[in-house]
Amino acid sequence: MYKAVFTEKAPKALGPYSQAIRVGDFMFISGQTPINPQTNEIVESDIVLQTRQAMENIKAILEQEGLSLDHLVKTTIFLKDMNQFSIVNEEYGKYLGDHRPARSTVEVSRLPKDALIEIEAIATV
């Protein structure tokens, strides 16, 4: 069995999917774009601010289930511009401290709502 996870502290899904699904000892977090859940709009078109918002959204979903960013075991980062890789690394690293989940980063041609970044994650529970 699985459980759909939802929190008002993260943006509502943009389509027919859940913010996250908890199954067994894992939680699969859908890709989080930098949408501010209070305004339902993408934050300013700045990679630092957008990375922060995507990470805050992931953090809120984890906290809904009593978890933290330390529970992350894998993330995938989708970037509109790979030239911003080092900037994203720096901001992403601030959220994780010494914790280092496995990660992939890929450049994509376009993201929902023309975001600059989207991050999906897998956590252990």
Rank of each mutant, 00 (worst) to 15 (best):
G31W: 10
M1I: 12
K80E: 10
A10K: 02
N36I: 04
N83I: 00
S86N: 14
Q53G: 08
D81N: 14
P16K: 15
G93V: 10
Y17P: 01
L116A: 05
S30A: 15
Q19N: 08
P37W: 04
T124C: 09
I77L: 10
K3Q: 14
D81F: 13
E44I: 12
E56C: 02
S68A: 08
E91I: 14
R52K: 13
T105L: 10
R110L: 12
P11M: 05
P112R: 07
N89L: 14
Y2N: 09
V48T: 15
S30P: 00
Q38R: 13
I35E: 01
G97F: 03
P112E: 09
A20H: 02
A20I: 10
L67R: 05
A10G: 05
I119G: 02
I77F: 05
L69Y: 07
H99Y: 04
E65K: 07
P101G: 09
M55R: 05
D114M: 02
L96C: 05
P112S: 10
K74N: 09
A13Y: 03
A13K: 02
Q50T: 09
A115V: 05
Q64R: 11
R100W: 00
R110H: 11
H99F: 08
E41C: 04
Q84N: 15
A115M: 07
L79R: 11
L79H: 12
G93N: 12
D70V: 01
A10P: 03
S86K: 15
D81Y: 14
K94N: 13
T39K: 01
I119E: 03
A54Y: 04
V125N: 07
L14R: 12
A115G: 04
M82I: 15
L116M: 14
V48M: 09
L69R: 07
V106K: 13
T75G: 02
S104F: 14
Y92V: 06
S86L: 15
P37I: 10
S68G: 15
Y95D: 03
I42K: 04
I47G: 07
Y17H: 10
E107H: 04
D98S: 14
K94A: 10
K59V: 00
I29E: 08
K74T: 01
E91N: 08
N36P: 04
G15Y: 05
D70W: 01
Y17T: 06
A60N: 10
A54F: 06
V88Q: 09
P101T: 06
I42D: 00
A123N: 06
V106F: 12
